[in-house]
């Protein structure tokens, strides 16, 4: 089995800390800012650079206006120490999922053949609310190849109500 370190450990830990300290949104902003900063290729290559010493990297943050005794700063230091700073994006993503879950929200992508109106989306959301037993926030994506209807995609679950899917199902039934 592959010996891979999963970003889930970090996101689980910081979500628990954030919930205890009741500053979940602060942590979210912090992770978001960190991700934005990392999207700059120079920052990224500096922070991930193997030839640059850890103290140099930490000094850079010290110069910025971050309190040193802050938990967020400690977290950052830990990521740098372990060379896991590249996981930031994944940690943020998982953190958001945990946050949504705690607030009873599920995010979905609604794939449709044509752009949907706001009313249609809110109707679909309402229907999905009942199915997944959570408040559904969705985003519309257009894909002509599904022919009609829509596909609602949650993280790793899917509700296929597209014409393409139905036609495929019918094909299978007839072949049987």
């Amino acid at each position: 089995m592959k010996n891979k370190i999963s970003p889930n450990r970090y996101s689980d830990a910081i979500f628990r800390i954030a919930s205890e300290d009741r500053n979940v949104d602060e942590w979210k902003d912090f992770l978001k800012n960190l991700e934005v900063a990392l999207s700059d290729i120079e920052v990224r290559s500096f922070l991930e650079g193997p030839k640059i010493s850890l103290s140099e990297k930490i000094d850079l943050f010290k110069k910025a206006e971050i309190e040193e005794d802050n938990k967020q700063f400690s977290f950052l230091k830990m990521l740098l120490e372990r060379n896991h700073i590249f996981m930031t994006g994944a940690i943020l993503q998982k953190f958001n999922t945990l946050l949504d879950k705690s607030r009873g929200i599920r995010r979905a992508e609604i794939i449709s053949a044509f752009p949907l109106s706001n009313l249609e989306i809110s109707n679909i959301n309402q229907m999905l609310n009942g199915i997944v037993d959570a408040e559904v926030h969705s985003q519309n994506i257009v894909d002509r190849s599904i022919l009609g209807g829509f596909i609602a995609k949650f993280d790793d679950q899917m509700l296929d109500m597209s014409f393409r899917g139905k036609l495929n199902q019918m094909k299978q039934k007839i072949l049987e």
Partner: peptide, 14 residues
């Protein structure tokens, strides 16, 4: 078969 066809709609893992 087409007339009798009833599609299934349930959440599936992907």
């Amino acid at each position: 078969q087409i007339e009798d066809f009833k599609g299934e709609t349930s959440l599936i893992d992907v």
